[in-house]
Amino acid sequence: MSKLITENHFSDADAFYAALTDVHRELSTADSERLNARLILLLANHIGDKQVLLEALDIAAQLEQ
């Protein structure tokens, strides 16, 4: 059974999206890549649950979708 939440779960979706793009605005592609890596690691630990993480990886990897 799927455990990853794919319905809206944000308390403020617009604010998050703006913050995400803002934090990258001044960065080179290389630094953006670093920031993304840090963000993924921090969030992944917060989630912790292996099944949720693997489901998210799976959806993320479906680049053609």
Binding site: E33, R38, L41, L42
Partner: peptide, 23 residues
């Protein structure tokens, strides 16, 4: 390259945040 980015950022985070040490 991207594995290296993850590796290096894991190490940087590990200095301040215990969770990253497990990685």
């Amino acid at each position: 390259d991207i594995s290296r980015v993850f590796r290096d950022e894991t190490l940087r985070l590990a200095k301040h945040y215990p969770f990253a040490r497990s990685l």
